[in-house]
């Protein structure tokens, strides 16, 4: 996989929070769970394009701030009664630094636990 970039350290993202990586007009939301797993998803809810980075993170899920759609951050799939999918991006954590691949991985993203 090409296009890996270093985007910052795990501690730059609040626990159970997210920051965004700006990429022209599009944004990628990078999330940190309570066990320091990092996930990256396109910052656009499959429903009405709400910014998922502003949602509440719980487990490996995030709830969209606009209409409460819930997504599995690993697969990008909407949960519950809603149907939809948000593109995910591969991330890797090495020595506490987060590396992001800018090629959308669909649902093949394998998150890595932080070891730093």
């Amino acid at each position: 996989m090409n296009n890996w970039i270093e985007i910052g350290s795990v501690t730059d993202i609040p626990v159970l929070g997210a920051r965004i990586v700006r990429r022209g007009s599009a944004n990628i939301a990078v999330f940190r769970t309570s066990d320091d797993t990092i996930y990256a998803l396109e910052n656009k809810c499959a429903h009405k394009q709400g910014p998922l980075s502003e949602g509440i993170v719980h487990g490996c899920r995030v709830t969209c701030p606009l209409h409460n759609w819930v997504f599995d951050m690993q697969t990008g799939e909407a949960l519950g009664a809603d149907e939809g999918k948000v593109p995910t991006y591969p991330v890797e954590v090495r020595d506490g630094q987060i590396f992001l691949s800018l090629e959308s991985a669909g649902n093949t993203s394998e998150p890595m636990a932080a070891n730093g």
Partner: peptide, 11 residues
């Protein structure tokens, strides 16, 4: 500050 600034800007 973290809350209001992106983690990174890229091309």
């Amino acid at each position: 500050k973290q809350e209001f600034t992106p983690l990174m800007e890229t091309a």
